[in-house]
């Protein structure tokens, strides 16, 4: 069971090595500016001087999206073992999953009603 992951490991290492190789090539071959001014290392803000840091508080709607996502992602994790074994398993697992999905749909309807996905 573990052995089937060995080629994946080797392949992923090759992929990572490729990215690293490009970094190395760039480090060796890239030019270095001789007359860089302090403005060279400013953040880009359309040519203006940057106005404060970008690390600010941001809108809570992103937090709500993350919450809804977690609920549905956990549900998806439960669906996979069920999906693989459904064929020939009879009606009980089907009914079980419909109850489960039904509860989830109520949660979805609640989120929609409360405007959790509204992006105002």
């Amino acid at each position: 069971m573990v052995a089937q992951w060995i080629p994946v490991l080797v392949y992923l290492s090759l992929c990572a090595a490729l990215s690293v190789a490009m970094f190395v090539a760039s480090a060796l071959l890239s030019v270095r500016g001789r007359n860089n001014t302090p403005a060279t290392f400013d953040n880009y803000e359309c040519g203006e001087e940057p106005d404060g840091a970008a690390w600010i508080r941001f809108h809570p709607r992103y937090y709500i999206v993350a919450l809804v996502f977690v609920a549905f992602d956990v549900e998806a994790a439960f669906l996979f073992p069920w999906a693989v074994n459904l064929r020939g398993a009879g009606w009980l697992p089907l009914v079980d999953m419909f109850v489960f999905l039904g509860i989830l749909l109520i949660g979805w309807a609640y989120a929609v009603r409360k405007g959790a996905i509204k992006w105002q």
Partner: peptide, 22 residues
């Protein structure tokens, strides 16, 4: 692209900024 100057902005989080493109 390989030859271009590798600039890291002064205010950036240097480590994260450096490794993210890998």
């Amino acid at each position: 692209m390989i030859q271009k100057e590798d600039l890291i902005p002064r205010d950036a989080d240097r480590v994260l900024f450096y490794i993210a493109p890998l």
